[in-house]
Amino acid sequence: MSLDTNRSNDLSKSKATNIANTVNHNATQPPWLAELEQRSRRNQQTFIDHISSRLGRPRATEPPIHPFRGAPSFWKEWSWEEQERVERFTAHFQEVGGHVVSVDNLEAAGEWIAQYAQDLEAREIVRQQLPELEQLRLEQRLPDAHLAVWNEDQQTDWRATAAGADIGIVMAEGAAAYTGTVMVTSSAMQGRSVSLLPTVCIVLLYKKNLHTRLGELLVPLDQRGRQQLPAGVHFISGPSRSSDIENDLTIGVHGPGIIYTLLIG
């Protein structure tokens, strides 16, 4: 199903988008789904009108003035110097059971990963299909391991490949030191599974993309706008964990139990 032609950021066109979508859906959807869509549009009117009537006024169509958007203003103006960002990020990520390693460049990162993979005797490695990760030269460094590059061909079952991998390697788009969080996004070259299904997850992060506050990662998502957002934006702050059995901390419940951030630069 192709929706790209219908994607419109301009809300004044939303009516036109509706019609276009309906036509498109009718053309490509099975009848039961088209029928649900039709029903949804009918119900939308009643559902939202009901909300307006409960609120005791006619339907609001103009954007309301939102005077409290985002964090308090004192917060938005505040940031740490780079040295402190690195220290805090490291402390916060490690505090919850993650690991942080500083390396000078991609070459050094490749060297570190190869050594680590050998120590772990990792057989299966999967990485995102990104030029930076190419530069790690893992294929040469680890001739005995099987190295899969996400979505490299159409035949492979990529989910199963990631699920069977010992190590998954991804590139972070940004990070926030205050919460100790890295942000990874999805695309054709960057499967969500790579940071989720393998036993170990290694995240590469350029020091220049390490910010202070979470808001510094979130505000740009608003600026990108709906059409430019990736399907998945994942904020990762440490290994998968649970305290559901007698408050006893367990690491690696569903996601990777071991997570490394390689801080580059």
Binding site: S2, H92, V96, W150, N151, W158, R159, A162, Y178, T179, G180, T181, S186, S187, A188, G191, R192, S193, L214, L221, R226, L229, P230, A231, G232, V233, H234, F235, I236, S237, G238, P239, S240, R241, S243, G255
Partner: peptide, 24 residues
Amino acid sequence: ATGQRLTMYMSGITGPKRDEDSDG
């Protein structure tokens, strides 16, 4: 909820997988 700075995962999902994606 738990006294954490942030939960280990916070995920923002915008629509189903894109046509070219291999998961989602």
